[in-house]
Amino acid sequence: MKVQNNKAWWLVLPVFLLVAFSAIVPMMTVVNYSVQDIFDHSTRYFVGVDWYKQVLQDTRLHDSLLRQFIFSACVLLIEIPLGIVIALCMPTKGRMASLVLIVLAIPLLIPWNVVGTIWQIFGRADIGLLGWSLNSLGISYNYASNTSDAWVTVLIMDVWHWTSLVALLCYSGLRAIPDVYYQAARIDRASDWAVFRHIQLPKLKSVLLIAVMLRFMDSFMIYTEPFVLTGGGPGNATTFLSQTLTQMAIGQFDLGPAAAFSLVYFLIILLVSWLFYTAMTHNDKTR
C-alpha cells in the first residue's frame, strides 16, 4: 500500500515544470490563435468561434477525419491479431530468442521518413523489388497513381513498421505467465486453442489494452511515412489528419483555422485516450 505524502510533489516538480513549459504554453497559444484572425504581429482581430464553425463544417476535414478513422481501424484489425500470432510463435529462450527480439525491433528504430523512403523505393515499378515483381506477374500496380494501391501500400508499410511493437508487448506479457499454468493444461490434455483461449488471452488482456492504445494513438497522428511515400496522393486519397493540419498551418499559414483544427483534433485524442485509460485502470482494480 502506498503512503499518502504530499511532499512527493517536490519529486514530481521538475517533470511538471518541464512538460508544462512544452505543453501548456503552446496549448494556450493555440487557444489564443483559434479565436483571432491574424495577419501579422500587430494586426489581429477577435473573431470568436468563427474559425471553429468554418473548420467543423469544412468537408475537407470531414473527409480526412473519415479516412483517418478507417485507417486506424484497419491498422488495429491487422496488427493486433498478427502481433499476437507472432508473439506466440517466438522462441522463449536461448540465443534465438534474443536474435529474434533484435530483428523484430529493427523497424521500430528506423526514422519515420526513412521508413517512407524504404517503401517508396521498394514499391516502385522500375527500381523496387515489390513493384517490379507484381508488375512482371501481370498485376498492374502503381502506388503513385492508383488509389487502392496507395492505400494498400500505406497499410502494408504501417504493418511492417509497427506490428513488431504489438508482438514485443505480447511477448513480454506471455513471459509473465507462470509455467504451472501450462503444466496444468498439459495434464488436462487441453488443445492449443483452449490454452490460448483460457490461459494466454486473459493474461494478455492488460498488455493488449496498452498495445491497442499505443497503436490507436500513433496511427491517428501518422504523418511522416505517408507524406514521404505518397505525399498524400493520389489526389487526397492518403491525406490523413496530421497532414491536412500541417498543410493548413505551414503551407497556407492560416493560423486561426489551423489552431481551431488543432484543438478539435486534440479533443478527439483526449476523449479516446481517456476512455482507454479509464478502461485500463478500471480493469486493474477489478482484478
Binding site: 504554453v25 494556450m28 497559444t29 487557444v31 489564443n32 490563435y33 479565436v35 483571432q36 491574424i38 504581429h41 489581429r44 477577435f46
Partner: peptide, 15 residues
Amino acid sequence: MDWMAWTLPTALFFG
C-alpha cells in the same frame, strides 16, 4: 509574451 497573442476572453477562460 506578445507572440502568444493574448485576448481578453481567452485570458478570462484560462483564469
